[in-house]
Each structure stands twice: as structure tokens, then as C-alpha cells.
């Protein structure tokens, strides 16, 4: 999940009886699966929650360019270079689709980006882990994009129209990302030498647990889930999505001929699902707080890009004004 632990500012769900007439009409609209559009009335907490969630999601796409960008100059063949460049470019694009959806709520993109740069806004914890080998590029595509897709497919039905439409577009485009990642790993496992195979297993060992953390804490530790679900901003619980991801990923893992760093991972015929071990939530909260391996570098890189580019953006504005004045004269 690209947006984790989104604060709703609502501690307890209101019943329909407790709502004002406007609130009730709004909730009934949502219950009837009618999309909320930018100019519809909405509770301020709904608007703020969406701004937080969509901006977090957008920040994740943009910061998510960096771990893969770490390898784009070192992609090992022309084909792999083209694929990776196209994928990173999509991520920038998806960030922009999402900022665009966010701006329909009256939020300002530059203001929200400043919150990212000052450390106030969150983004997905997964991008605070380093990419240490080419196999990481494959594992990020397969596991990280795979986890994101599980979440995003559900978000296509989210209640806010512009967000839902952005998700539909993103899901359509992202279908190649996970396949690209898996194919990188499969090629290394099937046609590669021992060093390459070791790289793949090492990448999975490092990225497996952080990928499972992407879905956010268990439902009983997600204080904001109930309201987000009632508003249908969120459509399924963290645990349900995590289980779905594990169930679909383990057979792919076996096909690779690799293992997960989880001795408790095994099929439970009774449940019809895979059982898995305990996630280290301490690590998750530490990374989210800013103490992950790469938090400082990621935010610093993004901040510096925008600061260093200030004169470029200002020049474009100044030139546009000069040109407009010339045309008016």
C-alpha cells in the first residue's frame, strides 16, 4: 500500500441519526456507490483525509523513482535499460496523475510537496530501503509493485471520482511493471550463473518483510480504518489485502525456485490461505518515523532537486510573462 496510516481526524463513527442533513445525504450517496465529485459538498474531514491519502500516494510514486533510479545508469543491457526507464517514467507520471486528483480538492501541489521535503508528510515505508544489486530492481518490480497493485486494484472503486479515475489509469499502465520485475528475476534464476542466483535470493530476503509491511498494520491497530472504510475511501482491510498478496505471491516464489525468509510460511488447507510469521512492526514504525536506512537520503534528494531547480522554474515563468507582454503590445 502506498498510503499507510492515513489520519482521518475522526475518532468514532457517527450513526446516520447523529449526522446533519448534509452529512446524511453525503453518506447515503456513498452507500449507494455514487461517486463524489470535486464540486459536491463533502465533510471537511473527508476532504482532508483524501488530501492526506492521495498526496501520500503521490509522494510514494515520486520517492519510489529513487531506488530504481539508483540502477538506471547501470542497467545491464539495452532492453533492460529501456524497460527500466519506461517504468521510472511511469512512476513520475503516476505521481502527477495523483497530484492532479489531489488538486481537485483545493489542495496546492507545491504546498503538499513542501510538507514531504520538511519531513511532515509520509510516503510508503518501502522506499526507505536501499537497492543493492540488479536483482533488487527485479524484486522491487515483482514484490513492491505487486503489493501496490493489490491495493490499487481495490482503490479503483474508491468513493472520490478523480482519485478513482486516476487509479484506473494507473492500474492499466502498471500491469507491465510487475511482469517486468518478475521476468528480470526469472531470467537470472533460469539462465543466470550462481552469483546471479544468489543475488536474487538475497534481494528477496531483504525485501520480503518490508513488502508485507506495505499494507500497513493489522486491522486492530489501524485506528483510522473504520472511518476510511465507511467513507469508502478505503475498500478492504489491511489484513485482507496482505493475505491476498501472500496467496498470489508464494506460487510465483516457488516457480522462481527461491524461498521466503519466513520459516512459518506454509499452506493452510483449512483456511484456504497461506499462514505466515509475525511481522516486525517495530521496524515498520521506526522506518515511518524517519529512522529507516534511506529516509534521510530520499527526502534530501527530492528537496535538493526542487531547490536546485527553483531558478529554472522561475526563468520559465519570467519568460512566459515577457512573451505575453510582447504579444499584448
Amino acid at each position: 500500500m502506498y498510503a499507510q496510516l492515513v489520519e482521518t481526524g475522526v475518532k468514532r463513527l457517527k450513526t446516520l441519526d447523529e449526522m446533519s442533513e448534509q452529512e446524511r445525504a453525503f453518506q447515503e450517496r456513498i452507500d449507494a456507490e455514487i461517486k463524489i465529485e470535486a464540486r459536491n459538498w463533502m465533510p471537511e474531514a473527508y476532504r482532508q483525509t483524501l488530501i492526506r491519502q492521495i498526496s501520500q500516494h503521490a509522494h510514494s510514486e515520486i520517492v519510489g523513482m529513487l531506488p530504481e533510479g539508483n540502477w538506471v545508469a547501470r542497467a545491464p543491457s539495452l532492453k533492460r535499460k529501456l524497460q527500466l526507464m519506461a517504468k521510472i517514467q511511469d512512476e513520475a507520471g503516476h505521481g502527477l496523475y495523483l497530484y492532479s486528483a489531489m488538486e481537485t480538492l483545493g489542495a496546492d501541489r507545491d504546498t503538499e510537496i513542501n510538507k514531504l521535503h520538511s519531513g511532515k508528510a509520509k510516503y510508503s515505508s518501502i522506499f526507505n530501503y536501499p537497492t543493492l544489486s540488479w536483482a533488487d530492481v527485479g524484486a522491487v518490480g515483482w514484490l513492491v509493485d505487486g503489493a501496490a497493485i493489490v491495493n490499487q486494484v481495490v482503490l479503483q472503486r474508491t468513493s472520490y471520482g478523480p482519485y478513482s479515475r486516476a487509479m484506473i489509469r494507473i492500474c492499466k499502465e502498471e500491469s507491465f511493471h510487475q511482469r517486468q520485475g518478475y521476468e528480470i528475476l526469472l531470467t537470472m534464476m533460469r539462465e543466470g550463473n550462481q552469483a546471479q542466483k544468489d543475488m536474487v535470493q538475497d534481494a528477496i530476503n531483504r525485501l520480503w518483510w518490508p513488502s508485507l509491511m506495505m499494507f500497513g498494520p493489522s486491522d486492530e491497530h489501524s485506528p483510522n480504518s473504520a472511518q476510511s472504510m465507511a467513507w469508502k475511501i478505503k475498500r478492504q482491510s489491511n489484513d485482507e489485502l496482505r493475505q491476498r498478496f501472500i496467496d498470489q505471491t508464494v506460487p510465483q516464489l516457488e516457480l522462481l525456485g527461491c524461498t521466503a525468509p519466513d520459516p512459518e510460511l506454509k499452506w493452510n488447507a483449512e483456511r484456504g490461505h497461506y499462514d505466515f510469521g509475525q511481522i516486525q512492526w517495530d521496524e515498520f514504525y521506526e522506518v515511518l518515523k524517519g529512522n529507516g536506512p534511506c529516509n534521510q537520503e530520499r527526502v534530501a534528494t527530492r528537496r535538493q532537486a526542487i531547490e536546485d531547480g527553483a531558478w529554472v522554474r522561475a526563468a520559465a515563468v519570467a519568460h512566459a510573462k515577457k512573451k505575453a507582454n510582447k504579444n499584448a503590445a
Partner: peptide, 21 residues
């Protein structure tokens, strides 16, 4: 490629990568 993630505007990230592709 060396501009990746470091371009002066998000819109330029896409544009530079397109030219690179």
C-alpha cells in the same frame, strides 16, 4: 539518466526520460 529523480520540475522528469528513451 543521471538526472533521474533530480530534474528541476516533476514535469521535466517525464520529458527528460522520454528523450532518453
Amino acid at each position: 539518466c543521471q538526472w533521474c529523480g533530480r530534474a528541476p520540475a516533476l514535469e521535466e522528469e517525464l520529458a527528460l526520460m522520454n528523450v532518453g528513451l
